[in-house]
Design a binder for these strands. Structure first.
Length: 599
RNA sequence: GCCCUCGUAGCUCAGGUGGCAGAGCACACCCUUGGUAAGGGUGAGGUCAUGGGUUCAAAUCCCAUCGAGGGCUCCA
């Protein structure tokens, strides 16, 4: 939506505006449930704000206009936001009946030791902000007064459940999402973006374009791909495969089922057991559907004999379908599934090679993202925090972290660090790409792993004749075929670039007597590898054009007597503009050009 | 998994205070052979997600299960 970094957003006027609007929402909700509403937290977020409540009844969408109306009244009151800094006792007294606020007050009074590291500044003094009749425990900052908000630029959007402090063991609260902007125009633009996103929803377009289905007979999160959908999948995978081969990656295949013991050795069992499908048991030996490739690729590395430092780097790539037992509530279309095909790769190298390999992977990723028209992205350097979920080996983490940082510095890419996002075995560089609507997706990833190779006993012979443990870089370009396809459908609004379109051209005869010529034309085009259909149905030409437009087929070739006599085609592109009559050869070079340019 | 909402034809959706199941598109057949976004007619298609309950009567009300969506949480 905007290119502001987090830091400048947090000091922006818009941030204060949204924060203040959240307070006004909280006031309106408290008045709706006098004496019964418990308020939790209500921060600004990207594009808006939310506030969490514990209420005597469930909110419905019908409540939102009522709350909005009351918010408008409060805004019109031009109430000042007044900051105060009570001591601990006063704070406890003020919120004596607000248990969530009390809990927050105690947290501020006694900061959590485990998070002490990430909070570099002094512990905050307790501060309140009061406007009208409402006082909130809040760090601020806020607007001068409520009148600075344009009520026509504020809208409440939805109600959702949210755990107190994001902890599934704690109370489920009700969250109201809202949005606020400086001007009604900006609000309208944002609401348009939401509408546009709905139109582009890959689940909707996937049905409309006939790409994939879900079936109750198959199971949740297990998509079925139609011939058209599989065509796109196949194109995506062969494209990445070709690029990988060009960059010196080798493709391997390691199957679907693995002994559970391997995941105990690798550490995945401990960390991800809940996200694996239940075990299959064969005479006391437990097997699992493969939820990730790393242990399989590492096992293959081991089986291939002794390795010399001269053989490294070795790069194993695989388009493997993995099975992850995602919780039922988390499944979403193609972006979150239980069977996913990763374009995964593991690079076995010496510590000295990390930087070069990282740079190579970076080049590869940039080439691929560009082909898919993702040009706006940044890199998130994902580091560990102090929680216990990471493998304990400070020395190795340090090396891995600085290796990644160096490589990123050398690359000149825009990156930012985020703690708590690392893999359990090492830090990651994640590519966060914005689509045409400004939404950010995590696509590619490069991870440094000093842990698993030693856990699984991988070795190579170094120059010194000694055995060493290789470093493994984990790398995915598009992530998973399924998810990436979902993102692509939304990025392109279903209008795939010509090279990816399941059908590149539809031949539309005007009358039946043109059919024979259409078949000849179709054969000519298919012989040079184009994906072409003839719409030989009983409909009129207009109706066939409409059908092709709705299916977003890049080219419609209308064939009547005139074209037949002059051995030409009437070319209509899906933009609907500039239909031209061309010779078949002219059309061939036109479509070849659009394929290679990636349009 | 949890909170909320939803599930009617292949698709998009009406209907519903309990009383014979509806439309458009798509599909099949017939007529029409048309020049750049929907030609006309006829027809077929539903155990109203599934299972139980209340009732003379359930698509409609209640319970459970399954599935989907908005979130929370998680993502090797």
């Amino acid at each position: 939506m905007n290119n502001q970094t987090k830091e400048t957003y947090q000091t922006s006027q818009l941030y204060r505006l949204r924060h203040s609007t959240a307070h006004i929402l909280a006031q309106a909700v408290m008045e709706m449930f006098p004496g019964e509403a418990q308020i939790a937290i209500g921060p600004p977020i990207e594009n808006g704000f939310y506030y969490d409540f514990d209420l005597p009844r469930a909110l419905t969408l019908d409540d939102l206009p009522i709350l909005e109306k009351r918010m408008h009244e409060i805004i019109d009151g031009k109430h000042k936001f007044i900051k105060s800094e009570p001591n601990l006792e006063q704070a406890r007294k003020e919120f004596a009946h607000q248990k969530y606020k009390l809990e927050l007050i105690e947290t501020i009074a006694k900061p959590d030791k485990s998070k002490a590291d990430s909070v570099k500044h002094e512990p905050d003094a307790i501060s309140f902000y009061t406007h009208d009749t409402f006082t909130d425990l809040c760090r601020g900052p806020h607007l001068e007064h409520t009148g600075e908000i344009n009520p026509k630029a504020v809208k409440l959007l939805s109600v959702a459940g949210a755990y107190w402090r994001g902890d599934s063991n704690k109370t489920m609260l009700q969250r109201i999402y809202g949005t606020a902007w400086n001007t009604p125009k900006e609000l309208r633009k944002y609401l348009w973006t939401i509408e546009e996103a709905k139109k582009r929803d890959h689940r909707k377009l996937g049905t409309q374009l006939g790409l994939f289905h879900f079936s109750n007979d198959i199971g949740p999160g297990l998509p079925l791909f139609t011939p058209a959908g599989e065509t796109v999948r196949h194109l995506m995978e062969s494209y990445v495969r070709d690029v990988q081969s060009k960059y010196g990656y080798q493709h391997v295949w390691t199957g679907h089922v693995v002994k559970e013991d391997l995941y105990k050795k690798s550490g995945h069992y401990e960390n991800y057991r809940d996200a694996m499908f239940p075990a299959m048991i064969d005479e006391n030996v437990k097997f699992r559907l493969k939820p990730m490739n790393c242990p399989s690729h590492m096992s293959l590395f081991k089986e291939m004999g002794k390795h010399s430092y001269r053989d490294l780097p070795i790069r194993f790539a695989e388009f493997a379908t993995l099975y992850r037992y995602e919780k039922s509530g988390e499944l979403t279309g193609l972006t979150r599934v239980r069977s996913l095909t990763q374009d995964d790769c593991h690079i076995f190298c010496t510590p000295d090679q990390i930087q070069d390999e990282f740079a190579l992977a970076l080049d590869l990723i940039q080439e691929v993202l560009k082909r898919y028209r993702f040009t706006d992205y940044r890199v998130r350097l994902s580091l560990r925090d102090n929680t216990g979920k990471y493998v304990q080996d400070d020395e190795k983490w340090k090396i891995a972290q600085s290796a990644l940082k160096n490589a990123l510095d050398v690359s000149g890419l825009d990156y930012y660090s985020e703690t708590g996002e690392a893999a359990f075995y090492g830090p990651k560089a994640d590519f966060m790409a914005r689509d045409v609507l400004g939404r950010e997706w995590q696509l590619s990833t490069i991870q440094v792993d000093f842990i698993q190779p030693s856990k699984l006993g991988l070795t190579y012979h170094g120059e010194d004749g000694q055995e060493h443990t290789p470093v493994v870089l984990h790398r995915a370009v598009t992530g998973s075929t399924e998810r990436f396809l979902g993102v692509l459908i939304e990025q392109y609004a279903g209008a795939f670039p010509v090279w990816l379109a399941p059908v590149q051209a539809v031949i539309i005869p005007i009358t039946d007597r043109n059919l024979e010529y259409c078949h000849k034309l179709s054969t000519t085009l298919q012989n040079v590898g184009l994906r072409v259909n003839i719409d030989a149905g009983n409909d009129r030409m207009n109706s066939k054009i409409r059908k092709a437009q709705v299916q977003k087929v890049p080219y419609m070739l209308v064939i009547g007597d005139k074209e037949e006599q002059s051995n030409s085609v009437s070319v209509r592109s899906r933009s609907g503009k500039n239909t031209t009559v061309q010779s078949v050869d002219e059309f061939l070079s036109l479509i070849e050009e659009s394929i290679s340019s990636g349009e």
